[in-house]
């Protein structure tokens, strides 16, 4: 047997960034946010849709609404769009409450909502069901590498989607906590951390060369990355958002040889929105 293996060409997929938005809120504000009407233009969530949702689902859906509201997505048909959700340590508070209930009261105390609402795919499924997106929907990550893995799998899905549904977009939703929630032994929150969401609307683009002035994401070789703003694959979502807000071209190092390059998002060909409830509150 000859077990030698060979390498081949680099991943050539590329996605144009059509829209970008971030949102953040303190944990204490999430319940109120879940009760708000989530809609923009012809797109809206059914009433009470988020009543059982995890905190990261709520902020993720809010960032989707922000991305819809930037003007490019107003009347676009999103029925065949795909959604990928990259979440980090979601469902912690519900998990704690469920386990305390299980221990103290037995299986009757376990809510069935823990399964659909606190799994890794929950944010993606909520977006798909809530906004009527029939393209693939799945979750990715789960840990600190989640945003990086989300970008990589968006670029993985791009050639598949371009083949089956050329006019469709990929909604990449990344969520996570700036600082993880701390709970007391009764499952009560003892801090008030910030939950952050970021949505990219990505158009798969298979034809090269592309107009480099348009914001885009692509896989590149580590040695070819020009960006001085390089983050490790386990970089926090907050740091990533800060790079984008500054208009920096950002590189995420995935492995020794592979990186994700995200061009500057400050181009006048892209409108982006940041809705930080915290800032609004402070201003008020």
């Amino acid at each position: 047997m000859n077990h030698s293996l060979s390498s081949s060409a680099d991943l050539s997929a590329l996605c144009l960034v059509e829209s970008y938005a971030t949102a953040s809120a303190h944990s204490s504000e999430i319940d109120a946010l879940a009760r708000e009407k989530h809609s923009h233009g012809c797109h809206s969530l059914p009433p009470r849709f988020l009543r059982h949702a995890d905190e990261q689902t709520v902020i993720g859906m809010y960032s989707i609404i922000q991305a819809m509201a930037d003007g490019t997505q107003d009347s676009r048909d999103i029925r065949n769009d795909a959604v990928i959700a990259a979440t980090c340590l979601g469902g912690q508070q519900s998990a704690a409450r469920t386990m305390i209930g299980l221990r103290d009261k037995g299986p009757v105390a376990v809510t069935p909502h823990i399964v659909p609402q606190c799994s890794l795919h929950s944010v993606a499924s909520a977006a798909s069901v809530g906004f009527g997106m029939h393209g693939p929907n799945f979750g990715v990550g789960g840990g600190p590498h989640a945003p990086a893995e989300g970008f990589l799998l968006a670029l993985t899905l791009a050639p598949m989607l371009a083949k089956t549904s050329p006019s469709s977009r990929i909604w990449l939703v990344c969520t996570g906590w700036d600082q993880q929630p701390c709970l007391d032994p009764e499952g009560i929150l003892t801090n008030d951390p910030i939950c952050r969401g970021m949505t990219f609307v990505l158009k798969p683009e298979m034809a090269r060369p592309v107009d480099n002035t348009h914001p885009h994401i692509q896989v590149s070789s580590v040695k070819n990355t020009p960006s001085p703003h390089t983050l490790p694959a386990h970089g926090r979502l907050k740091e990533l958002c800060e790079q984008f807000e500054k208009g920096n071209c950002t590189t995420i190092t995935m492995t020794d040889t592979c990186a994700i390059e995200i061009s500057a998002l400050s181009s006048n060909r892209l409108s982006s929105r940041t809705n930080e409830l915290i800032l609004q509150k402070e201003a008020a």
């Binding site: 659909p116 799994s119 890794l120 795919h121 993606a124 499924s125 929907n137 799945f138 979750g139 990715v140 990550g141 789960g142 840990g143 590498h145 893995e149 990589l152 799998l153 995935m254 492995t255 020794d256 592979c258």
Partner: peptide, 11 residues
């Protein structure tokens, strides 16, 4: 494993 690694979830 030296290449990319990721977890995916679709129930």
């Amino acid at each position: 494993v030296n290449g990319p690694a990721t977890t995916v979830a679709a129930a």
